[in-house]
Design a protein around this nucleic acid. Structure first.
Lengths: 204, 204, 204, 204
DNA sequence: AATGAATGAGCATTCATTCAT
DNA sequence: TATGAATGAATGCTCATTCAT
């Protein structure tokens, strides 16, 4: 028992420090930007020595990657879980959209890194795209296809284009929220976006 | 006459060189990213000496700002001009959207700088927002308001939100186009975006 | 008995580990050079933890010193033993020279450390000189003096200079052998060196 | 005329700075060793900014290479010139040996870099060997062969081995001179070495 | 205006050494 | 004794900017 607890503690210890570095990096990157952030800023924020960072990450860049990967992983797996039991495609999109905004709305620093730093380099964007973003878009696309089969969505629309439109709209909400000086809730925007996305702005 | 021509030439010469630096910078920033681009890369691309850059720009950052400002200025003034004679708000939005994608679709390097480098720093984004982006969004918003008054658009929608949705959707088209390895025409996407934006994806 | 055996074992164990570290260090230094070798390389090669090295050596530099000292000690004591029973000075020099080349020829890594790493710093060289090299040269010198008294060697020569000449010649053989890609026996070179050293290259 | 003088000056200016860096590096390397020397030490010694070093050399290592190359080039070309008019092989060897010791004896720092830093790494030694050292040894070897043909030197000796013996002996003189605290003239040692090399230590 | 040599502040990363366990 | 995670000082190199010509 004692032994197993010790094992737990040391196991967690390593993970904890890695976690702490990632949290610190999100904070620092969000405030100063990736290129202007110094590794020693991150180490300082995480209250560890500079060199310790390199026991957990191969390089500054790897920290950024880890942030993306971790984020997208949970984004996608949570998203899938959430929509699992939902039948109607429109309800699924609603849940995905809410989740998207809730998640980023709950962690401003994370949102900044996601919206801003990630976009600052084609290299990052491509890697990120490969890392999970493409999969995320694909979930939306599939759901739209489903909706078309369910007779909920128009069949004359290209699901790939629609998925980009929805994502783009949500993404813009997040970006605006980040840049806004006023503090408002991000999540409610999901409903507004979906209203337009589903029904259009044109008067019937 | 000779003197005035000389004056003209040198005046234009100055402008030309400034222009050359901006073109060179767009090219270099697009390929390597702002932070990874060296001033000497830009100077080399513009076929001038490193120091000469500083006769036209105060700093590397100012070059980026100039790119944004120049781009937004023509974007906005051209946009205004284009929609001037158009009556219907939906037609105006169509023209704006087409222009948006045509412009960026015609200059991939510019599009990359606009979509990618510009987003890489909250500082840039805020400055850019102040620089003209806000005005651009506002034109869209006003047009939507007009459409509501014209009875073309639903009156229960918030024009500010709608303008972000439209911009976000268009923006995502551009981003995807940039990242795509396949070479396809960007402009046609305007029609698809507007179809969804106007009519929604839901089956009537 | 059991206790004493245990004591023996731990005593030997300590020596063994020290020995293992030295062997590992010779191997690592030979391959990567002193400055480019990491303590963790040595620890890894010796299959112990990094920190354990410091239970046996005060510093990385001390490991190098230990290598020199150990090497020179056995070099000198073995050399003395070998020539003890020999009467003629020329035969003594022959034995010393053979031993010199046999020793280094039998352990390429050791030879590399001796020839190369040791020479990489004036500090090391001075310390090494103090550590035993001077004594080694002195044995050669004394033997030459003896040879002069025995009427075997010319009396008009300075034994100090002659000892350096012989050592330098042997040393160069070793260095060339190390750098050579061809695998050949080092020891036979002793005869060639001594032939020239004794008789000169001039045709009588 | 004025133009050509200006051209000369600027041409020399670049060379002068390069030269200054090399001189500074020789001084610094001699005192602290290659690995312990900081680029900023060299820059400081040369009274230029750190970054300026990199306008003339690609890396710290390239400075060391330049030192070797420059040294060996002049060593070899001067050596060839000096022995050109000499007929007898033994006189040629005498001139070469004297030159060897005169050269290094005239510049203690250079000698230290040559004798010590150069030997501190197998990598350097191999590169150096390729760079010109092999050619130097070869000149000695050829001269010995000549001497054999001239009937001056014994024909039963291997010229390759003999060349190494002579070089090794001279080299050891230099090394001892460097390490010695007493200030004595190095060049006279050439005669002593050659006496032994030509005639041997054995009493005829 | 134009040049490009010179500057020097800035920073990611390494690694010998320590020390709590 | 042994471990190996943590430390933090140390440094080669880059590059935006300046300035003498």
């Amino acid at each position: 028992m004692a032994a197993s607890r010790t094992a737990d503690v040391s196991a967690r210890s390593g993970t904890d420090k890695r976690e702490a570095i990632i949290r610190a990096a999100i904070r620092v990157f969000a405030r100063k930007g990736y290129f202007s952030s110094k590794v020693s800023d991150i180490a300082g924020q995480a209250k560890i020595a500079d060199g310790t960072v390199y026991l957990y990450f191969k390089s500054k860049e790897e920290i950024l990657h880890s942030i993306f990967n971790r984020m997208m992983e949970s984004f996608i797996s949570d998203g899938k879980k959430e929509i699992e039991g939902i039948e109607r495609a429109d309800e699924k999109l609603r849940r995905i959209s809410e989740l998207h905004l809730e998640r980023l709305g709950a962690d401003r620093d994370l949102a900044i890194v996601f919206q801003v730093q990630l976009r600052g380099s084609i290299k990052f964007m491509r890697e990120f795209s490969a890392a999970g973003f493409a999969e995320y878009l694909d979930i939306i696309r599939k759901t739209i296809s489903e909706g078309q089969k369910q007779g909920i969505f128009r069949k004359d629309l290209n699901p790939v284009v629609c998925s980009k439109i929805l994502f783009g709209a949500l993404d813009e909400m997040v970006t605006n929220w980040i840049l806004s000086k006023k503090k408002f809730e991000l999540a409610p925007a999901a409903g507004e976006v979906l209203d337009v996305f589903f029904n259009g702005v044109a008067r019937a």
